[in-house]
Design a protein around this nucleic acid. Structure first.
Lengths: 221, 221
DNA sequence: GGAACCTCTCAGCGGATTCTCAGTGCCCTG
DNA sequence: CAGGGCACTGAGAATCCGCTGAGAGGTTCC
């Protein structure tokens, strides 16, 4: 990982390590090029804004040297360098800061596994769809408006669709890892969600697994 | 880069250097012609208003000598020459002062990479249009006057039309990456913008996504 | 030096959102 | 079929967030 903002670098480093990755961290472009040339990594996480050599340059240099390790770029930018720029230079995927940690892990896994970008960033479960990049939820073609908390919960459930997730897991991932309030919030928010995505469509996407937690039906219920 | 306003020259010089460019700076037309003849640059940034030889003459002379280095011209807003002149003379792209630094970098990258101008950039969203090169905003055929900040904000929103962008992203891209003031400025400027582009037309192009940020409706609201 | 303009800050308001709480109902087990 | 545990529900309190008007500095242009 190449990232110069120390706090961000540290957070992501710890997170990725926890997620089972072995991470090597460098803080500027020159070291990035050197490290990538000397070692063979599964994937490189490359920030655009870097001291000495910016991310684009690093990528150019690596590709010029015939190093084709998959690269995921972190852009704090916008349309002026849109993703076509990153893709033109041979980046394999990209994320815009600020990004969701869960999304980062998912994309990295995809890059390592398939050696290519995870195409659809749209999670589907039957007629229910969630577009991560646009933060848009639809069912049956109809857009559904969610509050941030509701959205976070649904995204988590959809990323684990088919699995039963416990309330503790939900609290740790959708609320705060250090959350110590009443676990009943989860039930309350499941209710809110059901009111918006199930009741109006007479479906039943979120199932209660009594004593275990919840499960999002991959077929949409 | 050929630029005679010292403060602007200095700012841009530093910025481009940080962005990874190697920049050579001259301050008048004669030196510009000489430098461009002697060296081989990737791209030339050429101001129109210059001592001794103006930008148009410089460009003419270079092209006459068979020097086809891509040229990006900087034109003043109210100039008697409009952009057709610049293109006629063989400029490859142009920007109107005052310009966004990010746009400058993007255009330079485009010129270097593709050896040609970035495709014409008129952003559209329903009956709302924004011409990036001319810094011109229209709705329903009527021109709308915006202050630089308002314009920057609108350009950013239009480059991301359809996406929800957070206040942090906006601050980092339209204000300063190191901006640490009150994020409320964004709300204030959204309000100014809405007063100019929405209220008079009884439309609603800029949507608030509570807890997330803003979204420019691609249909114009 | 003044007028017009632009940028940004500030504080108050009101609605949306989040969370807590207590009561209810349902399921499973014994 | 009784009881306990777990999930569901409605109400409401607390908090957050975006909107708004006013106005203070700064700049530019006469």
């Amino acid at each position: 990982m190449v990232e110069d903002e120390l706090r961000l670098a540290d957070t992501v480093h710890r997170g990725l390590t926890d997620a089972g990755f072995v991470v090597e961290l460098v803080h500027d472009g020159e070291n990035a090029v050197w490290a990538a040339t000397e070692h063979s990594y599964d994937v490189i996480v490359l920030d655009i804004m870097l001291p000495k050599l910016n991310g684009y340059r690093v990528l150019e240099l690596l590709r010029a040297r015939g190093i084709w390790t998959p690269v995921l770029m972190l852009t704090a930018k916008d349309g002026e360098y849109d993703q076509t720029d990153a893709f033109d230079l041979g980046a394999d995927d990209y994320l815009t800061k600020p990004f969701s940690f869960l999304v980062l892990v998912a994309r990295l896994r995809a890059l390592i596994r398939r050696g290519g970008p995870e195409r659809p960033v749209v999670l589907m479960a039957g007629d229910l769809s969630l577009d991560v990049a646009r933060r848009r939820v639809e069912r049956n073609g109809r857009e559904i408006t969610l509050t941030p908390r509701e959205y976070g919960l649904l995204e988590f459930l959809m990323r684990h669709r088919g699995d039963t997730v416990s309330k503790t897991e939900i609290l740790q991932n959708v609320w705060d890892p250090a959350f110590d309030g009443d676990p009943n919030v989860v039930e309350v928010y499941v209710r809110y969600l059901r009111k918006k995505i199930d009741t109006p469509f007479a479906r039943h996407a979120i199932e209660t697994i009594r004593g275990m937690g919840y499960r999002l039906n991959p077929e949409g219920g």
